[in-house]
């Protein structure tokens, strides 16, 4: 599964880790994150993320 980078603050969403502080289990792909999920660091929406090269 691909990692995604927040273009605003540089946070990397790693599916292997998920985002447990915000109820996202490890193993959740970026595509499967809920539409209203936000960058846990800066609050950017999913649309502001890019696939990590």
């Amino acid at each position: 599964m691909d990692k995604y980078v927040c273009t605003i603050c540089g946070y990397v969403y790693d599916p292997a880790q998920g985002d447990p502080d915000n109820g996202i289990a490890a193993g959740t792909s970026f595509e499967d994150l809920p539409g209203d999920w936000e960058c846990p660091v800066c609050g950017a929406p999913k649309a502001d993320f890019e696939k990590q090269a």
Binding site: I8, C9, V41, C42, G43, A44
Partner: peptide, 9 residues
Amino acid sequence: LETRMLHWP
């Protein structure tokens, strides 16, 4: 008003 990244989280 939250203003995250203007200019810190």
